[in-house]
Structures are given as C-alpha cells and as structure tokens.
Write a protein that binds this DNA or RNA. Structure first.
Lengths: 151, 151
DNA sequence: ATGAGTGCAAAGGCTTTGCATTAGG
DNA sequence: CCTAATGCAAAGCCTTTGCACTCAT
C-alpha cells in the first residue's frame, strides 16, 4: 500500500493489461490526478485536474479502470459519483462525509473496530448467501465550514 | 422502535406538523408503502406500491418527509436514491448491498461492533471538526441470485 | 378565500452512447 | 494496417421545477 508513483503506474498498467486494456496517456493522467488529489473526487474535479480530457473519455476510462480494479467508485448523498484509487493501492480506510456540501475526507479506523466489522461481514454474508466483496463505513455529519455558514 | 401502524402515522403526522407541514393522503400513502416494503425502496418502486401518485409528488413529498425526519434517503452504487423509514421508527440497522443488482437487505449488528463504531464517530468527528449526525455501515457483495447468474 | 398540495409536462444535471477520427501495437 | 481509444454531439435517466388546478382550513 501507498505505492510510489512509479510503482503505482506499473501496477495500474499490469492490471489493465491483464484485463486486455492499454494503459494510455488519458488513463495515466487519470491515475495521476487521483493519486495527487489524495481524496475522493468527482468527474468534474478530474476534468479540472487533468487537461484536454474529454468528458466522455473520463467516464469511459474510469469505468475501465474500475473494472480493472485500479479505482473505486462510490456515490454520496449528493448523487455525484466520486472516484479514488483502489484500496489495495492506498490502504484501507473509510470516509467522513459532509451531509451539506458532500465533501469527503479519508479516515482511518482502529484495528479493533476494523476487525469487528470484518468478522461481521463474514458472518452476515454467510447468513444471507452473499459473497462479501468489501465493506464501507461512512460517518456522516456537518463539516466545520457548513456548520458555521448561515445555511 | 418498530412502532405499530397507528403509532407510526401519529408520529409521522406530529413530525410534519412541527415542521409546518400537513400529513396529506399522499404522504400517508408513502409512509404506508415504506412500512409495508420493510426495506429500502426506490421512487419507481414507490410509484408501483402506491396508486395514482404523480412522480413529482413522490419526489416532493419524500423530500419533505426527509426534512421532517420521517424517512431517510440514501444512494447505493446504482445511482438511484432509496428511501426507508427513519431509524428511530424502525430501529437502528445497516445494509447488505448487492453490487450487481443494487438490491438492499437490512441487517443488524452486534452491540460490540455498534458501540465501537459509535465511539469512533465521536472521536473522529471531534478530530476533524465535524458534527456527526449518523453513521452508515454497508456490506457490499454479490447476492446468491447474481452469483448464480451467468452474468 | 387563501395558501398548501397536486398533476402534468418541460427542463436540468450527471452519465452514457453513436459515430467519425486518431493513435497505439 | 487494424483495432482500441478518443472527442464531439446527441441521447438517456433520474430528479427538479414551472404552472395551473384542487383541496383543506
């Protein structure tokens, strides 16, 4: 986890390749931007962070990167998808989300809680016939900015 | 928690009233449908479950019910909003989500894990200047149906 | 009567798709 | 060369909004 830039790109390239996909400059730029951002970002953000990337290409490439396990996509209450590098590249973490502005901050969780949740996932999955892929713990609240603002 | 139907409607009515809203028949029908569904449902589902309810009214009323704290809205990876009755009406629980079909099942979590997460929420919130409103724990995987399907 | 609530249809915003062009292997 | 990838514009889908009508108080 927390791979160096070079290592990151190598891993990304390998995963795409084993998916029968190329690691093009657009895709590299997206991975780069996600690494630099170091927090979940929307497609709009990514278009700002990269340059000369068509919106449709961003969506298409993010879908491919997700399929290859390089990025992770999720949606918060503001209905816009956010992307971040896959957890096995950056380390397992959870999210602190502002219910007002939709902002997301990465957080780390004590091992005790993490273990409890992991065990739970196994048990619950078995009980319901689900194959658990991952879990997601969100703490939802109001960020200092939005608390202060006169709404 | 797990209020009787009568109690449920009474509580819903009160909350709307203290929000300066009426408990109209459309709103009652939505609450009724959510209670019967007993799982998070999409607006499309709600339109099927109720009858003669305009789509726009569904959205508008759900927003008002959410504002009044009667229902809770959230989004899974399939980008469609789901609604359920507020947790203080049905009991605190979490979700088991199918990453393929977007289906959601309510689950309950052992007190030990729950306590750990609650404490965590307090700590993390303080550390980041957030006022935590609630937390959300999702177990994401593939339901038995989708595992079997030849994709 | 008077404003909230409703239905219908149109508009919005994020995302996906079609198609001709470009580029990587 | 030949298919994958790209950009542009159009289309889609969920959701929101405008407006006239209806209902409750």
């Amino acid at each position: 986890m927390n791979a160096s830039p070079a290592e990151l790109h190598r891993t990304a390239g390998e995963r795409l390749q084993s998916d029968g996909q190329r690691y093009t400059s657009n895709r590299r730029a997206l991975v780069e931007a996600l690494a630099v951002a170091d927090r979940p970002v929307s497609v709009t953000d990514l278009l700002d962070l990269t340059s000369g990337l068509a919106q449709s290409s961003a969506y298409r490439n993010l879908a491919i990167l997700e399929e290859a396990g390089v990025v992770h996509r999720f949606v918060t209450s503001d209905d816009t998808a956010r992307y971040e590098l896959s957890e096995d590249l950056t380390g397992h973490h959870h999210h602190l989300i502002c219910s007002k502005c939709g902002d997301v901050v990465d957080i780390e969780v004590p091992a005790a809680v993490e273990d409890g949740v992991s065990q739970l996932a196994v048990d619950i999955g078995a009980a319901h016939g689900y194959t658990i892929e991952h879990h997601q713990l969100d703490l939802v609240g109001t960020c200092s900015n939005c608390s202060t603002a006169t709404r």
